[in-house]
């Protein structure tokens, strides 16, 4: 494993368990009918967002997906406000106008989850263009899934970033299923990273359940981007422990397959094992983090539950930014 300062190890553990705890509690709240709409949970994929975000600053940008809670948490998004958003409350980070699929926190460079598969990839390229033209040394990271790597936006955006040598990293979370269709039935190549060759940029595939491996690969890609050497495509092979969405009957994969991944490739268990074996952190330190995280999530839930609903008149607000003459928000 790479040399990682203790502070960072603590952060990695805290972030992964925070995502896990958040998602498992959201699953319960959704089942209880307290969270409306669709939720797509990140359980099992925690090492990807965490290993990448370990290298990002607040001023760096990310774009996320419909399975975006993990990215949001790892980027340092405001969890109280996002939990309230999941509930559809007025105190939500999007004032109850976005919900799970549109959570964003511009204050920490989180340019938003996206309900359209692949829709956010060019936005990261745009942020990277802004970074370059403003002479900054920040980076942008686009997260997306294996399904998105078949979309036009994946190909068009990566090509643009490559020809313009922009400071952006493309992170494909290949969780082996685009909803129900398995990876081997969507693509003939062994790794999405092979597609990097088509754009003349480095492509690397990594075990997305191994946070240390992700950390190492992301470090190099992000450094390359910061140094003006252009984009990298990373494929993190990962697995979602829950359905595509909450309520997914999962007829496309066996229970045995899911159990195998949970038993052998749980990124949090793997981290704990390594870290305790090497004596880098103690069991007490890990337990203390778990307690702290549980408390934080419960506080966020309490805040969300106690928050008021948005007022009906708010439906008409926040469409436009610059006021004008004439009718902007039409109503008969």
């Amino acid at each position: 494993m790479p040399e990682i300062p203790k502070e960072k190890l603590l952060w990695i553990y805290e972030t992964m368990v925070k995502i896990r705890e958040h998602e498992e509690r959201v699953a319960e709240l959704f089942a209880q009918g307290k969270i409306p709409g669709f939720v797509h949970l990140y359980v099992g994929e925690e090492a990807v967002a965490t290993g990448v975000m370990a290298h990002l600053r607040k001023e760096d940008f990310i774009t996320s997906t419909h399975r975006g809670h993990g990215h949001f948490i790892a980027k340092g998004g405001n969890i109280k406000a996002s939990m309230a958003e999941l509930f559809g409350k007025a105190t939500g980070i999007c004032k109850g106008k976005g919900g799970s699929m549109h959570i964003a926190d511009l204050d920490v460079g989180e340019l938003g989850a996206n309900g359209i598969v692949g829709g956010g990839i060019p936005h990261a390229v745009g942020a990277a263009l802004g970074i370059k033209l403003n002479g900054l040394d920040n980076v942008a990271v686009a997260f997306f899934g294996d399904g998105a790597s078949n979309q036009q936006n994946f190909h068009e955006a990566i090509n643009l970033a490559a020809i313009w040598k922009l400071p952006v990293v493309f992170v494909c979370e290949n969780n082996l299923y685009q909803i129900s269709l398995s990876y081997s039935k969507q693509q003939t190549i062994k790794s999405v990273a092979e597609r990097a060759a088509a754009y003349g940029i480095p492509g690397v595939s990594v075990d997305g359940q191994d946070v240390f491996a992700v950390y190492e690969v992301a470090k190099e890609a992000i450094e390359r981007a910061r140094n003006g050497e252009g984009p990298t495509l990373i494929e993190a092979k990962t697995y979602r422990f829950r359905g595509h969405f909450e309520g997914d009957p999962q007829v496309y994969r066996s229970k045995e397959e899911v159990e195998w991944w949970k038993e052998n490739k749980d990124p949090i268990v793997l981290f704990e094992k390594t870290i305790l074996e090497k004596g880098l952190l103690t069991k007490e330190e890990l337990d203390a983090i778990r307690e702290k995280v549980k408390k934080e999530i419960e506080e966020a839930i309490k805040f969300a539950e106690e928050s008021p609903w948005p007022k009906p008149e708010e439906v008409l607000e926040d469409v436009f930014s610059t006021p004008t003459k004439g009718v902007l928000v039409w109503q008969w």
Binding site: P122, V125, N134, L160
Partner: peptide, 25 residues
């Protein structure tokens, strides 16, 4: 500042959207 693009309208319009959202351009 004056950028010729490949014929990839979704890609470059999306890039414009992201650049605008970032507050940098």
């Amino acid at each position: 500042r004056v950028r010729d693009t490949p014929i990839a309208e979704s890609g470059f319009i999306g890039t414009g959207v992201g650049a605008a959202a970032s507050g940098l351009l």
